[in-house]
Design a protein around this nucleic acid. Structure first.
Lengths: 139, 139
DNA sequence: CTAAAACCTGACATGGATGTCAGAGGCAAG
DNA sequence: CTTGCCTCTGACATCCATGTCAGGTTTTAG
């Protein structure tokens, strides 16, 4: 483990990648999109802090929830500087995304139910095959 | 409304698209991927039946749930011909996808919770601004 | 000191569902 | 017949997060 000039733990990009299960390539991309910041060493290498680990995980969550880089970048100010003036619009945006996500979840649950129904039907059919009721099972 | 040679309602691709909210382009793509079948008129136009409407909606559900064309095509036999021998493997596949979907839902719910938490925090901050506790609110 | 491993930038590739365009034929209404 | 809309095929375009490769510098370990 490394220490920076004032003793803070320094995390390099490879370690951050390993700890978040996000590729190095993607971390650079996040920075390019303004979702992530890094300080640079004299030679130009990215240095992160412990806080970035959680941030990256959160970003990943949002990607998984179907948000785009653009949208995420609109929400993050709200995370970084709660209650600043600019976060007022971000708060609306976040509420909007939350609702979209909620509808999405509902639809997924319905889909899961549909799958469950299909599987139950299929299993029932298989059952009726194994226990033929008098007549020979069809095909 | 059209009638086919034996009186079944005939649905053309444009109408199917309108009724399922799926583009004509996508319907042709589904067919290309083996997810959808159509009979053809003498001149080559696609004719669908009422049943296809539901099928397309179901396919859309699965896409929304993150399944790929390939995966969907592996599940559909199970829908079309329940209890056939080939659906045995398809049933496993479906169970597997169901579980994946379930985990996905769980993660989305966690993400939604996280957003709720953030919004609550942000609102609390805003509250504390409107009701300053002694000191002048910053900015 | 040296070799291996990690990092840098920049560029091009990928996959998958969908959009879009072009050119041609089909079909109902006036 | 003509006009307008629908459909056909085939091809190319797009988006966007990631992968991958190249060529070069830095850091680490022996």
């Amino acid at each position: 483990m490394w220490r920076g000039s004032r003793g803070e733990a320094v995390v390099r990009i490879g370690e951050l990648a390993a700890r978040t299960d996000v590729s190095v390539r993607s971390l650079r991309y996040y920075e390019e999109q303004g979702l992530l910041t890094s300080s640079r060493s004299a030679s130009g290498q990215r240095h992160y802090t412990e806080a970035e680990v959680e941030r990256v995980r959160f970003i990943q969550r949002l990607y998984t929830a179907g948000l785009s880089s653009r949208t995420i970048s609109e929400l993050l100010p709200c995370v970084d500087a709660p209650s600043e003036g600019n976060s007022d619009a971000a708060l609306d945006r976040m509420a909007q995304e939350r609702d979209r996500l909620s509808e999405y979840i509902d639809e997924l649950v319905r889909t899961r139910d549909a799958l469950d129904g299909l599987m139950a039907t299929a299993r029932a059919h298989r059952e009726s095959l194994r226990t033929p009721t008098g007549t020979r099972p069809r095909r």
